[in-house]
Amino acid sequence: MLAFANTHADAGDRVERFADTEGLTTWLGEVAWGGAEPARTVADSDVVEARELRDALVTVLLSHSNDPATSDPAVRSAEAILERAGDRCPVAVRLSGAEARLGPGCGGVAGAFAGVLAAATELALSGQWARIKACRNEPCHFAFFDRSKNTSAGYCSTQCSSQASMRAYRARKKDALAGGTSKHTDNT
C-alpha cells in the first residue's frame, strides 16, 4: 500500500509513476499482489483511476498526519473515492489453518487496486491504520509508517520537518515585516 501511495512526483527525485499506460504497466509488473493475476493490458482509464485512487489515499493519510492544509471536505471526498473503488475492486478473504488475510478478489488492474484496499483494511483491523501517514511537507507527501511512541509524527524525515519549519519561519517573518510596514504606513 505504501508503494502505491508513493508513486507520485515530488520536488525531489521521484517521478510520476502513473503518467501513462506504460508507467502503470511497469509499476504493476514490479509489485506482486498475492493472488491477483497480473494486468495484461492497461487502458488510459486505468491510469486515471490509479491516480485518483492514489491521490485519495494520500489525502486520507494526510489527515492521519493532522495536515492543516487538508480540509474535512477534501477528506470526505477522498473517502468517497476509496469507497467507490472498494465497490469496483472486490476484496476476498483468504483462510488457512495458519492465518486469515484479505486479498484481491479478481485479477488485472482491478486486482492490484483491490490489493491496495485489502492492505489498508488489514492495517485498520490490526489497529495500525492511524500510523500510516503522509508527510505534511507540501512538495513531499511521502507515505510512511509512524513509529513514534505517541503516533505524533507528521513528517517522513527530519529533512522534511526542517524544510517545513523553515518555510513556516520565513512566512512568519514576512508577515511580521508586512505588518510592521502597514502599521508605519497607517501612522503617516
Rank of each mutant, 00 (worst) to 15 (best):
M1S: 05
N6C: 03
T7V: 05
A9E: 13
R14V: 03
R14C: 10
V15H: 15
V15D: 15
L24F: 06
T25H: 14
W27H: 08
W27S: 01
G29A: 02
A32L: 13
E37R: 14
P38N: 02
R40P: 09
R40C: 10
A43V: 06
D44R: 09
D46F: 03
R51F: 01
R51C: 03
L53E: 05
R54P: 03
V60L: 00
V60W: 02
S65C: 03
D67S: 02
T70G: 06
S71H: 09
D72A: 07
I81E: 07
I81R: 15
I81Y: 13
E83H: 15
R84H: 08
D87E: 15
R88M: 05
P90H: 12
V93S: 15
L95I: 11
S96R: 07
G97S: 04
A98W: 09
A98S: 06
A100F: 11
G103D: 07
P104K: 06
G105V: 00
G107Q: 02
V109P: 13
F113G: 01
V116N: 00
A119Q: 13
A124E: 07
A124W: 07
R131Y: 07
R131H: 05
I132M: 12
K133G: 07
C135Y: 01
R136L: 04
E138G: 06
F142H: 12
F144W: 10
F144C: 08
R147T: 13
T151C: 12
T151P: 10
S152V: 04
G154W: 09
G154Q: 14
S161R: 15
S161D: 13
R167Y: 09
A168C: 14
A171K: 14
D175S: 02
G180N: 11
T181A: 14
K183S: 07
D186H: 14
N187E: 12
T188W: 13
